[in-house]
Structures are given as structure tokens and as C-alpha cells.
């Protein structure tokens, strides 16, 4: 069941669209913000609210890489792997994260604190290599700076 707060936020979101389903992404992201990810149960709650089938909503949810249909860690690090960052060494950034936290792209640390995911160009190419942790973007992330940055989160 949607919580009171979730329901209120969803009701605000649907006001922006002439049809309820227009708010599908807003709704998925809102519930994800509260619950961390979109479980089958969450999916059903949202679909009911939007008056569409869960299958229909799932075809949208599974399309987007920022909608998590599996649990993720308390923090998510998104490492840009597009061209400007590749030129400037995004592979070393990934390696450094693996060395420090023993976690590969697409995985979560065993203590559930950190998930590492690849991401398309973050629009900070002039400061490549770039990464985003939760909602914070970092540029020029030399491997030796990684520990310092990560310490703020884990």
C-alpha cells in the first residue's frame, strides 16, 4: 500500500498531466526515493494508483536504467563510461573502485552500502572522467582521489 506521503506526492504529480499515466515516471521515481527500489509490490501499488495494469507499468519501469527493479545499496555510484571519460581513463576509475570496495560494475558490496553502475555521458565531459554518487556529480576523478570522495558516503 502507498503511504500517506507517497500518495500525496503522487497526487501532486498527476496534476501535471491530462492523463494519470503521464505521471508514470514521476510515480516510479517518487516511490523509489522512499523505498530504495521498485519491488513487485511497489509496482502493483503504483499501477493501481495510475489505473493501468502492472504489466503495462513494468514495460515502462524496465525500460529506464534509473528505475531499479532490483534492490540497490544505500548509495549508488554511477561511473560514466562514455567517450570523453573513456579517453581520460574511466576504466581506471572502475578498477580503483573495485580495488577499494571489492565490487564490480552492476554489483552491490556485501554490506549493502554501495552499488556501482555504469552510466551514459553525465554531461560533464569537460571535466572527464566524471561520476555521480547518488545525486552529486564529481569531475576529474583521478583514481587517487577516489577514496576521499567515497569517504563522504561510506
Amino acid at each position: 500500500m502507498l503511504t500517506e506521503i507517497e500518495r500525496r506526492e503522487l497526487e501532486d504529480a498527476v496534476k501535471h498531466y491530462p492523463e494519470k499515466r503521464g505521471a508514470a515516471i514521476d510515480a516510479l521515481l517518487t516511490v523509489q526515493r522512499h523505498r530504495g527500489w521498485i519491488s513487485d509490490e511497489s509496482l502493483l501499488d503504483i499501477a493501481q494508483f495510475l489505473e493501468i495494469t502492472a504489466e503495462d507499468l513494468d514495460s515502462i519501469a524496465t525500460f529506464y536504467n534509473l528505475v531499479f527493479r532490483k534492490p540497490v545499496g544505500r548509495h549508488v555510484a554511477f561511473v560514466c563510461d562514455s567517450i570523453s571519460c573513456w579517453i581520460k581513463g574511466c576504466e581506471q576509475v572502475q578498477e580503483q573502485i573495485k580495488n577499494l570496495y571489492d565490487v564490480d560494475l552492476g554489483q552491490t558490496t556485501s554490506d549493502g552500502r554501495l552499488t556501482v553502475l555504469p552510466i551514459a555521458c553525465l554531461g560533464h565531459c569537460e571535466r572527464a572522467p566524471a561520476m555521480m554518487i547518488d545525486q552529486d556529480v564529481y569531475g576529474e576523478v583521478a583514481p587517487e582521489k577516489m577514496k576521499n570522495i567515497m569517504d563522504k558516503y561510506i
Binding site: H16, Y17, R21, A24, I60, Y64, I119, A120
Partner: peptide, 27 residues
């Protein structure tokens, strides 16, 4: 005027995919 924050996927920038995305359909 409304702000719609999306959830990834490059194809959403193609204008007709974007329209589907805004309507809450697969983009």
C-alpha cells in the same frame, strides 16, 4: 509550465520517443 524529470535512456531525446515518454508509455 511543468518540469518532467526523466529516468535515463538516450532514445528519450528523439522527439517522438520523448512524446511517448511524457505520455507515460515505453519510450
Amino acid at each position: 509550465l511543468h518540469l518532467h524529470s526523466s529516468a535515463g535512456r538516450y532514445i528519450c531525446g528523439e522527439e517522438t520517443a520523448l512524446i511517448n515518454a511524457l505520455e507515460g508509455k515505453r519510450a
